[in-house]
Structures are given as structure tokens and as C-alpha cells.
């Protein structure tokens, strides 16, 4: 959603609207002869007047902190000693490679993303396909699948913490009914992240299902009719009509959930405090703890910079792949 529209054409060019056929790709707006200078000046003033509040706010509260994070990452900024900041070069960055906790948090985050993204995508698509037909109670089913989205991540995390409780939790009680012994869902290092993944998919899939449904409705009916005439099977129709029709939407969802997945924080913070044995500590959580609990803003900033670079890289790789796909 960003790449295409950021192409450098002056989108504010009036001519663009009067004569859409006219190419307006040049940076300098053409044909300004007729406009009087003062008029152009006035328009610039008005334009900036409208734009300035947003620009100032973005500059102060987004770009400046970004720069500050970069600056802090080269210092030993310690919260308890805010007046004693010294420049320490790349020390913070070199420590990242020795920091076993960072490595663990990194791989935890990768593991979470690599599982959650495809699973959630598949579940969402599956649900959308299931109810994208004439059904009794269709609205009821749709609402049911969507309902976890209505709860906040905090609410859901708390709810599932109680459900996952090793002794009195609902899920273990239900498993007990069918003769399965209690599982240490959140208290075993092997299961904790998987338990968080299950919950996350449960919470998020309904939302992407809605987007898929909207996409499915946009696939023209005549394509299916044509396929019917060709005697295509349901599977063939799915493969050659439905999937291509959903490609753009699927890509969009893919990008948004993979970035969201990489920012994992709330679930482990509430459900496991990153444990057991750091098995659910995510990158953002590690940064938060380092900065706030251990007051090491310098090192936390260095990790934040690395985190930003990782997210950027993912975004760029996905963009490139998508562009290639589209050829």
C-alpha cells in the first residue's frame, strides 16, 4: 500500500485532475505560466498550513525518537544516570551477538512468525471458503468466527491464561473428560510458545476471514460459469479461479500479519512473562525489559535499531518477491 503510491509524481498537481490523460510524472509541475506567482505562493502557504500540524507531530513524535534511538544505541544511557551519557561506539551492537537472551528471543520470534503466519492465513482462507456459499445460519457462523476479534489481545490473553491453567484450567478439565492427562500448556518450555500460537491464531483468523470474504465476493461470477462450461471440477475451480482472484488480498494479509507477528509482545508478557526458561521471550519483550526493568536504554536502543532493520528487511523482501510475482 505504500510502494506504489510513493512513486514520485506530484500528486498535488491540479492538471492531473483536469486532464488525466496528460502524463504528469515529472517532479516539477509543468505549465505554470498562466498561474500568477502570488496565487502559487498563496496555494503553497495554504498547503503547508494544512499539512504542517501533521508534519510537526510526525517529526517530533516519530522521526525524532527514531533518530534518538539511533543515537542512544551508541551510548551507555542508563536510566538511573540520565546526566552521565557517554559515547561507546559499537559496543552495544557487538554485545548483541554475545547476548544469549537476544539470540533466544530472536529465534522465539522467528518461530512464532513462521508458524503463525501460514497457519493463520490458511485458517482464515479455509473459514472464508466454508461460509462463502448459500448456507443456513451463514451470518451466525460468520459472526461466531469473527467474535474473538472483538476482544482485545489483553482480554484474550488473560482469558486463555486461565483456560490453560495446569490444574484448574478449562482446557485441561475438558481434556480430562476424554481421558487425556493434564498438559503443562504454559509451564513447559516445549509447549508454551505453541500454546500462545494456538491462541493467537484463534484470536486473529476471524478478521482475515472477513477480508477474504470481501475478496471472494469481488471475483466475478462469470469466471465460475465459464469454468462450469469447461466442465471444471470444484478443485480445479478453486485452483484456477478462486486462488488467482484472491492473490492480491492474500499478499496484503501475508504482509500485515507477518509484520504484526514479528512485533509479538502482549501474549508472552501477560501469559508467561517470557518464560518458562525464556522460551516465549520475544524480541520486543526483551527490548522492553532491558530498557524499563533493567534500565539499560543504550543497549535496548541498539536492539531496537536491529529490530527495525529486521522488520524493514522483511518488508523489502516481501515487496520484491511480490513485484517479481506480478512480473
Amino acid at each position: 500500500m505504500k510502494g506504489n503510491s510513493s512513486s514520485a509524481k506530484p500528486l498535488t498537481d491540479h492538471d492531473h485532475y483536469k486532464a488525466p490523460s496528460e502524463p504528469s510524472i515529472k517532479k516539477v509541475p509543468p505549465k505554470r505560466k498562466k498561474r500568477r506567482r502570488s496565487q502559487a505562493f498563496q496555494e503553497a502557504v495554504t498547503g503547508y498550513f494544512f499539512l504542517a500540524p501533521a508534519l510537526i507531530l510526525l517529526g517530533v513524535f516519530l522521526l525524532y525518537p527514531m533518530g534518538a534511538a539511533f543515537y542512544y544505541s551508541f551510548t551507555d544511557f542508563y536510566i538511573l544516570k540520565p546526566d552521565d551519557i557517554s559515547f561507546i561506539g559499537f559496543e552495544n551492537f557487538s554485545y548483541i551477538w554475545q547476548d544469549a537472551q537476544f539470540r533466544q528471543a530472536f529465534w522465539n520470534t522467528v518461530y512464532f512468525s513462521v508458524i503463525v503466519v501460514p497457519v493463520q492465513l490458511a485458517v482464515a482462507l479455509g473459514l472464508a471458503l466454508l461460509i462463502n456459499k448459500k448456507l443456513k445460519f451463514r451470518v451466525f457462523f460468520r459472526t461466531a468466527f469473527f467474535s474473538p476479534v472483538v476482544m482485545s489481545l489483553v482480554v484474550v490473553s488473560i482469558l486463555w491464561t486461565f483456560m490453560y491453567n495446569p490444574n484448574e484450567g478449562l482446557i485441561n478439565q475438558l481434556l480430562g473428560l476424554i481421558g487425556i492427562s493434564p498438559q503443562p500448556f504454559l509451564t513447559s518450555p516445549d509447549q508454551a510458545m505453541n500454546s500462545i500460537i494456538v491462541m493467537s491464531v484463534w484470536q486473529g483468523a476471524g478478521f482475515q476471514m472477513m477480508i477474504f470474504l470481501a475478496g471472494l465476493q469481488n471475483i466475478p461470477n462469470h469466471l465460475y460459469e465459464a469454468a462450469d462450461i469447461d466442465g471444471a471440477s470444484n478443485w480445479q475451480k478453486f485452483l484456477h479461479v478462486t486462488l488467482p482472484g484472491l492473490k492480491n488480498i492474500a499478499l496484503f494479509i501475508f504482509i500485515t500479519i507477518s509484520i504484526a507477528a514479528f512485533k509479538l509482545l502482549v501474549q508472552p508478557m501477560i501469559m508467561t512473562q517470557g518464560g518458562p526458561l525464556g522460551s516465549t521471550k520475544s524480541l520486543v519483550y526483551h527490548i522492553y525489559e532491558t530498557g524499563f526493568n533493567y534500565r539499560d536504554v543504550g543497549y535496548a536502543s541498539a536492539m531496537a535499531v536491529v529490530f527495525t532493520l529486521i522488520v524493514l528487511t522483511i518488508t523489502i523482501i516481501q515487496r520484491v518477491l511480490i513485484r517479481e510475482e506480478r512480473g
Binding site: P189, P276, N293, Y294
Partner: peptide, 19 residues
């Protein structure tokens, strides 16, 4: 101390989990 206590607590917990 904030780091030290967490270090000990983590070690204790690891011992409890049989690490």
C-alpha cells in the same frame, strides 16, 4: 541487584524444570 536477582531466579527456575 535488579539483574542479579533475576539471574538467580532464572537459575532457580531452570533447576526446578530440570535443566
Amino acid at each position: 541487584y535488579p539483574v542479579l536477582t533475576d539471574a538467580f531466579a532464572q537459575s532457580f527456575h531452570a533447576a526446578a524444570l530440570g535443566e
